[in-house]
Write a protein that binds this DNA or RNA. Structure first.
Lengths: 152, 152
DNA sequence: TAATTTAATTACAAAATTATAACTATTATG
DNA sequence: CATAATAGTTATAATTTTGTAATTAAATTA
């Protein structure tokens, strides 16, 4: 594969990132009392049912002390809860509560509001194209990024 | 257009964002002495040749005082320079220096290193698919997000 | 020309992110 | 069993991001 192709891909990803960031992160600040970092933790827990503290840190490339900080806040708001592991008492597993799942869905809806409106203005063909390319990009990026990184 | 389609698109974008963030933002910290905010300013200036302080703020949804802060830092490192506008002496235009452009290219190369390696492991067909979908997603998102937001 | 608007800066404070070091408790290893 | 490794917490500090208020200088407008 010639280098040029990958250069263009990287260039595209560098452009896509701020375009998403602008819309998804900014509105979060104003429309929710939760901070971005804790929302990322919610996101990964919403997708995984149950994760240990270390696993959360791995998935988000976040050192363990930060995970503790975020989980403390989320527990205070009854968004997640701790579950002790009977097989290994060092491990603390985290699960979202029903309230947490509902809160997460509501926050996502709220912060995606402006973007939904913008998408809605596109013609139907463009929307279907957007569905297609976003699905496939998500799929490929997920595949690439799955490898675990050993940090903490 | 049924709501469901847009829901899936939003869901995809919500997944793509952290996958990019993880790779593009994290490595920046370790591999450069420049902070993410200032790099975004560099990015927009790299794309636009010349912008006033207000225009930078608009494009990045960043209040003007913050733009000043970032530009001060970038000037201190000889990455950008101020140009006074002969037609309106209130306006200060910013341009990247040669060094700034070179630095930006180097930083991009450095922080995309891991992602390049990951992409390189894909087979040729997947890489071409990635080229295609990233190009088209970039194009659609650019189209959607172009509207100016009046802040500051 | 006086009043208002616009562009940018200065100054300050709060919140969030990031980076570490030191520590406790538990499990695994030699 | 003693030692090392693992999981998580506590504590502290530096950096960065974010949010505003007040100010200066120049251009607009009424």
């Amino acid at each position: 594969m010639e280098t040029n192709t990958i250069d263009i891909i990287i260039e595209n990803l560098f452009r896509i990132f701020p375009l998403l960031s602008k819309n998804l992160t900014k509105s979060l600040r104003s429309k929710s009392n939760i901070n971005p970092g804790s929302l990322y933790v919610m996101g990964v827990l919403n997708r995984h049912e149950m994760l240990s503290m270390s696993e959360i840190g791995c998935k988000l490339s976040m050192p363990k002390p930060h995970v503790t900080t975020h989980i403390d806040k989320l527990i205070a708001e009854n968004i997640v809860e701790r579950h002790f592991d009977p097989n290994d008492r060092r491990i603390i597993n985290i699960k979202m509560t029903g309230k947490g799942k509902a809160d997460f869905a509501a926050i996502k809806l709220e912060i995606s509001k402006e973007m939904r409106e913008r998408i809605n203005k596109l013609d139907e063909q463009k929307i279907l194209e957007l569905l297609d390319v976003s699905t496939r990009l998500k799929s490929i990026l997920s595949e690439i990024m799955t490898e675990q990184n050993t940090n903490n």
